[in-house]
C-alpha cells in the first residue's frame, strides 16, 4: 500500500502542476463565457497563435520565452480587442449560434494562416528550463518547466483577481456581466467593455500560449486540443470565479496524468475528454457553480 502511494506521488504532483497550466489555458475562455455569454471557439487557436508569436519574437531577440511576454501579451490583447470590437460585437444579441459560428470560422482561419506562414512542422519554445528537472525530497523529481507553469499561472490569477476587484474597469466588466442593461444606464459602454474584456482574455491566452510552447511541442492545428481542455476546465470549474477555474484546471490535469499513469500515455487526453463529457451530462453548470 505504502509503495503504491509512493509510486503515485510523482503523477499526482505532475498532474497538479499541469493543472495549473490548464487553469491558465481555461481562464480566458471562462472570462468571455461568463462576461459576454459566448463560447470563443477560437480560444485554443489564439493560445497557439501566441506560441508562434513568441517564437517569432525569439528569432529577433535572443531572449527567454518568458521575456517575450512583454511583446506577446500586448499584441494578443490588441488582436482580441479588435476581434471583439469589429466582429463578435456585431453578432451579439442575435441568438446563440451566430457568435459561435463566427468564432468557429475565426478558428479555422487562424489555423490555416498559421499553417501557411509556419508550415506544419512541430515547434517548441526552446529554453534551458524545458529540460531541467528539480528534485523535491529524495524520490520526487519533477520537470522544472511544470513548476514554472504553475507559478506563472498562480501569479496571473492573483493579478487578474486584483484587477477585477480593485480597478474601475475590472468592476465595470463585472457589472456588465451581471446586468448589461443596467450597466449601460450607469454610463458604461458595454460593447467597449466587452472588447476590453476580450483583450484581457486573449492576454491570458498569450501567457498560456508561451507556457504551452515551453512545455510541449505545438503545430498550427494544436489549437482545438487546447480549446477542449479549456472548455473542460470551464465546465468542471464552473463559470464566474477565477478560483473555480483554477480548481477545474487542477482536477483536469490530475485526471489526465493519473489516466496516463494507469492506462498508458495514449489515454492522457482521453481521460480529460471523458471527464468533460461526464460533467457535461450530469452537471453542465460545472462542479463548483453555485445553485
Amino acid at each position: 500500500m505504502l509503495s503504491f502511494l509512493n509510486e503515485l506521488k510523482a503523477p499526482i504532483t505532475n498532474g497538479l502542476l499541469l493543472g495549473g497550466l490548464y487553469g491558465i489555458i481555461g481562464i480566458g475562455l471562462s472570462m468571455i463565457f461568463g462576461i459576454v455569454r459566448m463560447v470563443n471557439l477560437a480560444h485554443g487557436d489564439l493560445v497557439i497563435l501566441a506560441s508562434y508569436l513568441s517564437l517569432v519574437t525569439m528569432t529577433f531577440f535572443p531572449i527567454s520565452p518568458l521575456l517575450t511576454l512583454i511583446v506577446v501579451i500586448p499584441v494578443m490583447a490588441l488582436i482580441g480587442f479588435i476581434v471583439q470590437y469589429c466582429l463578435l460585437n456585431r453578432v451579439l444579441g442575435k441568438g446563440m449560434n451566430p457568435p459561435l459560428l463566427v468564432a468557429f470560422g475565426l478558428s479555422i482561419i487562424l489555423q490555416n494562416l498559421l499553417l501557411l506562414v509556419f508550415t506544419p512542422d512541430a515547434r517548441t519554445l526552446m529554453t534551458s528550463i524545458s529540460v531541467k528537472t528539480i528534485s523535491l525530497g529524495s524520490f520526487l523529481n519533477i520537470p522544472l518547466v511544470y513548476l514554472v507553469d504553475f507559478i506563472v499561472s498562480l501569479i496571473t490569477i492573483a493579478l487578474l483577481s486584483r484587477f477585477f476587484n480593485r480597478t474601475y474597469m475590472g468592476k465595470a466588466i463585472r457589472a456588465a456581466s451581471d446586468d448589461e442593461g443596467a450597466a449601460q444606464l450607469m454610463g458604461i459602454n458595454t460593447r467597449t467593455i466587452y472588447s476590453f474584456a476580450m483583450g484581457i482574455a486573449t492576454g491570458t491566452a498569450a501567457i498560456a500560449g508561451v507556457l504551452v510552447g515551453m512545455t510541449f511541442t505545438f503545430y498550427p492545428h494544436t489549437g482545438p486540443e487546447y480549446l477542449i481542455i479549456a472548455f473542460g476546465v470551464v465546465i468542471v470549474g464552473g463559470l464566474g470565479s477565477l478560483l473555480g477555474t483554477f480548481l477545474g484546471g487542477l482536477i483536469l490535469g490530475l485526471a489526465q496524468i493519473l489516466g496516463a499513469h494507469f492506462l498508458g500515455a495514449g489515454f492522457q487526453l482521453l481521460c480529460g475528454y471523458l471527464i468533460l463529457l461526464i460533467v457535461l451530462t450530469f452537471k453542465p453548470t460545472g462542479l463548483f457553480a453555485k445553485g
Binding site: R174, A175, A182, A183, G187
Partner: peptide, 30 residues
Amino acid sequence: PYQMVAEGISMVPEGRRIFPRLTVLENLEM
C-alpha cells in the same frame, strides 16, 4: 444610454437592477 449619463440624465430602472455580485460600494462606484 451611456451617452445620456455623461450628458446628465440618470435613471433608476424598474426593478432596481442593482448588480448582485458587486458590493454596495462597488455598485455606487459604477
